[in-house]
Amino acid sequence: MIRPALTRLASLFGVLLVVSMLVFFLGSLIPGDLASVIVGHEGATPEQFERVRRELGLDQPLIVQYLNWLGNAVTGDFGTSPITAREVSADIAQQFPVSLELALLCLVTSTVIGVPVGIKAAVSNKGWVDAAMRASLLVMFSVPVFVVGILLLLFASAFAPDLFNVTYVPWQQDLVGNLRSMALPVATITLPFAAMTMQMTRSATLEVLSDPYITTARAVGVKRRRVHYVHALRNALPPVVTFLGFQFGVMMGGLLVVEQIFSLPGLGRGMLDAINNRDYPSVTAITMVFAAVFVVVNAAIDLLYPVLDPRQRSR
């Protein structure tokens, strides 16, 4: 258990390193640089421009710039935003919890809806329940997130304007208020993710249901529901959990649109602002955070595998 965990951890850092290089060097390909953002294009003399570049270290070779950045990043210092003039890490520290909460809530709701419905669909394979579920899945899946989001927003403001908070309330401040501000965004992304989770659960369960040990359980008199939700689900779980982990990464990255619609001060929105303002340090830092979340979650899933499937455990 220890050895694979360590190997996994090492490879995790490897992946992050590669991602950081990609982000850094690809970013340098974009025309213009931080100095031009700070100094601005008009009214600055080349001398001023050069001075800022020298101060920021932008006159040095790219590889040196990267190593400097990396050295600071390791200590949690991603530089200062030229737009807000604040530390990038401080911005992220504020944005990250918002996005994390959104993604976590979404993961919970889509799992709570998707998994049981998926099992139900598998059990009634080819029955009307299955058909109805698959049809609604197709609908939920085909409508773009921004359409659903805007529709929900419109409906909410028309029919229950007081029920939902339009501005973000941190949960540390007011938990209920927080949930009221999160409900609509969560609902918006839950729909497609629940649909995908359901589809995944359905196919994993279908596969398991035809396994002989399911017949064994039935032959010994285990209750039908228990056969489905304990005996079968436990074996369908590993692929579903892997999928959910992957989903979580995708969700974090996919928050841009939703955070924008519902004006939540999360990472997605931070990213969008940073890109619009050519806030290079922020773009790089947020990308690294997304990558780190993705990598860490997937590593965690890998470590979870032996817990879910005893055959993966060493003897």
Binding site: P212, Y213, T216, H231, R234, N235, L308, D309, P310, R311
Partner: peptide, 10 residues
């Protein structure tokens, strides 16, 4: 088939 008649997860 004793290889498949028992549930591998329990």
């Amino acid at each position: 088939n004793p290889m498949t008649a028992l549930n591998p997860s329990f």
